[in-house]
Amino acid sequence: MTRTIHLSLDINGKRHELDVEPRVTLLDALRESLALTGTKKGCDQGQCGACTCHVDGKRVLSCLTLAAQVEGRQITTIEGIAAENGDLHPVQAAFIENDAFQCGYCTPGQIMSAVACIREGHAGSEEEIREYMSGNLCRCGAYNSIVAAVREAASAVTTGIEAKDKVEVA
């Protein structure tokens, strides 16, 4: 029988216990073991960005991260960025308003990347947003609207509307 290890993961502020093989990626742990399927598998090779989530507030690819590696870290997924009362994160709201997606499959990764992009201070201009959002491929071609949504959300964040996000960083 293969070896399994017990992990206790801090995801979206909640503790999740699971027994998995050491080779299980964070992405597969989320999707197959924890029913957190908002994080998407597009390539499983670090080439598309659909699996982007946050580890200790930084955007990373969960397909190239072992679940075992992030025990003790704070993991945030698309399911964890709206407010407790259900209010959408400003980036989520801006994505809907600007029609920044079609099929929706790259969208959680785009949004997680966008939240981080703004937080990193890489949303200063359209050109900068394009470059710093280029790790998230969108085959439906929503790039114009993604840039518009990130710009809109970035200004909402800098004018202090966003509070939930800062809690996450802390």
Binding site: G38, T77, L88, D99, G104, Y105, P108, I111
Partner: peptide
């Protein structure tokens, strides 16, 4: 109109084929 399915798709609530429980 904005997409009817926008909220599901931006919150991870839209469930695709390989995600069915």
């Amino acid at each position: 109109f904005s997409r009817l399915d926008g909220k599901l798709k931006t919150t991870g609530g839209a469930t695709y084929a390989l995600e069915q429980p």
